[in-house]
Design a protein around this nucleic acid. Structure first.
Lengths: 279, 279
DNA sequence: TAGTGGTCTAGACCACCGT
DNA sequence: CGGTGGTCTAGACCACTAA
């Protein structure tokens, strides 16, 4: 497996580089005001390779020395580019082994976007990245292809009436229903997604999206509100009608700031809370 | 003002350094397994100077070259330490001018911890750091010294019954009451805080804490829940009784992970929402 | 043992800022 | 103009991993 990488064709062969005027003079390219620093250009080239799928989630990318040779820059410059990508969560460095494309399959990063935690577990030191201690059960209530409403279309940046896949599901923690959410996925990329596939898959949804639909969620924005439960919502989450629920709207982005998923979730915060860190 | 800095006594004079065995041999110190990399030690020394108040919020710290000389390391090593501190929001670099201690007085960072935004303003590109567009009005309902309840004591890491300052206030955005919160501050540090001082102060509370109580909030953790409004809460926020409100509990830390403020806020999310970014 | 990322250095030049 | 942070290079050595 690792040696496959050595023989993999260069994803962005050196001749393609638009930074040729740099390496020969070793001078900064910023005499042209529209130019970004070299390491940002390198970062852009690496990002493009990720977008294009030259290196897939979980795979090893070429070594820093290798990339430096390909791009005709010093290893330090590549290092700074990779540093930023690692900080943004796109790459994962492992000393002695190499640099890998981040994936939602990793134990460490599972449920990276799910910020709900049981009240008991939240005290003490910061520990946001810890997986949920209790078992999580999922119930898929619905999975259908439908047409984008105005709200969904606007959010996902597609046209009203375009095909989307809608998933409705319930998450239970320690047997208690905690999250009830609708998930909207743009049509083309998620064509083959069926209820059966959802049922049979073990692991986070985002891992499934990555493996089978070539869509990796990189970043997300959430809007939180408090709302009163409707009769139907109350029944599903086993709370009283009009009880306060946390409404979480999430827009997830794939590579290149592409909106790739919209979620509208209701969280029962009786015994759980949404945890956030401010810096 | 800037030249004051040049004559300021060295906050951590070079002889104090515990890293002496490094500079002479230029070899890594990690042969001792309990040691962290040089740049982290430098980072620790700078952090200590910030904690001790050697450099105060808003002030210019010595140049990288200067620090490198003092610590007996290369500028690149200092740079990496400062990079991390800047990424954590403790320092602020300004090209051509120098590196400054972060402060809650800066326009750019005002309301850094207040994540509520009007629904209308939230669409489009990521822009979390933007100040609120509308005017914000504050009403201080109460400011008294009291004794720490069990909850407050546990959260702030003090003993039950110890003296704390409690502030109760209302925030109005565009004339609409949006936040109703209780703020608890540990007794010793905030002795002189009075209702009059709160009323007369312009600018964020955290700026006041910084200027007059030598307590800079560096980081915070929040727990969010949805709750039904009590009669009193409903009246103050001008919503119906039992209407859903967003409960935000915030624990803020000063330098050295010291818990320095506990807040319990109720947000009216009828026309505003809590905005969050996931990476 | 070979290869990888991690640390550290020294030195060059650039962009930006205030005087 | 001098001083600051920002970029880039080249090279050394270390720590970790896997074969």
């Amino acid at each position: 497996m690792p040696d496959m990488m050595a023989s993999r064709p260069a994803p962005t062969p050196a001749p393609e580089l638009q930074v040729a005027h740099v390496s020969e003079s070793a001078s900064k390219l910023a005499s042209n005001p529209s130019f970004s620093p070299l390491y940002r250009q390198i970062k852009g080239l690496i990002t493009r390779s990720l977008q294009q799928g030259d290196w897939k989630p979980g795979e090893l990318i070429p070594s820093e020395a290798d990339l430096a040779r390909r791009f005709g820059v010093s290893q330090g410059t590549v290092r700074k580019a990779v540093d930023e990508l690692a900080a943004e969560g796109l790459l994962l460095r492992r000393q002695g082994r190499g640099t890998f494309v981040s994936t939602h399959h990793e134990e460490r990063v599972k449920f990276r976007f799910l910020r709900i935690v049981p009240d008991a577990a939240a005290d003490g030191v910061a520990d946001g990245a810890r997986p949920l201690p209790q078992p999580m059960e999922r119930q898929f209530l619905e999975c259908k292809r439908t047409r984008a409403s105005q709200e969904v279309a606007r959010t996902l940046g597609i046209k009203v009436g375009e095909s989307v896949t809608q998933i409705r599901r319930l998450l239970l923690l320690a047997g208690e229903p905690v999250v009830y959410e609708d998930i909207y996925l743009p049509g083309p990329a998620f064509r083959g997604l069926t209820a059966e596939r959802l049922e049979s898959y073990r692991g986070p949804l985002y891992a499934l999206f990555e493996s089978e639909f070539s869509t990796r969620m990189v970043r997300a924005e959430e809007k939180l509100r408090a709302v009163n439960a409707s009769a139907q919502e109350a029944q599903l989450l086993r709370v009283r009608e009009a009880e306060a629920l946390l409404l979480v709207e999430r827009l997830s982005f794939s590579y290149g700031e592409l909106p790739a998923e919209y979620r509208r979730g209701l969280y029962n915060t009786r015994h759980h809370h949404y945890r956030n860190e401010l810096n």
